Simulated assay, not measured.
Amino acid sequence: MIADYSADPAQRHGIRNLVELVEQRATARGFLVADHADRFDEITGELAVRFGDGRLRHERVVLDGLEHAPEALARIFRGDSRGKILVRVAPHDATGSTG
């Protein structure tokens, strides 16, 4: 859906395999994060635990140099990544600080 946010409504992708949804008598229901804002602290705390112990993983793409920021944004809006896309603008050393 992220790739379709700024698309012309006539060009947006619809639900794929809608026939399957109906034949399986399934229900599709969306939600917005804002609908659950009252649970933000609870949910982020649980996610921190799950990422910390390795039960959840994410992909990370790192592009070096501010000149790659437009490419990073384009990849986000195309939906090219299933995780984080970062743009490193300063060198990283072993201590975790930037140079």
Rank of each mutant, 00 (worst) to 15 (best):
D41R: 10
D41Q: 10
D41P: 01
E42H: 05
E42D: 11
I43M: 05
I43S: 01
E46P: 00
L47C: 05
L47R: 03
L47D: 02
L47P: 03
A48T: 08
A48H: 05
A48C: 02
V49M: 01
R50T: 03
F51L: 11
F51R: 00
G52H: 02
G52W: 01
G52T: 03
D53A: 02
D53H: 04
D53G: 03
G54P: 06
G54I: 09
R55N: 04
R55A: 14
R55E: 11
L56I: 12
L56M: 12
L56T: 10
R57E: 14
R57K: 15
H58Q: 09
E59Q: 15
V61S: 10
V62G: 09
V62L: 15
V62Y: 07
L63Y: 09
L63P: 08
L63F: 10
D64I: 08
D64P: 04
D64E: 15
G65T: 09
G65K: 11
G65A: 10
L66T: 14
L66M: 10
L66E: 15
L66N: 06
E67A: 14
E67I: 07
E67N: 10
P70Q: 07
A72M: 09
A72D: 06
A72Q: 09
L73M: 13
L73S: 05
A74I: 03
R75S: 06
R75M: 15
R75V: 01
I76S: 06
R78D: 09
S81L: 07
R82P: 01
R82E: 02
G83I: 02
G83L: 04
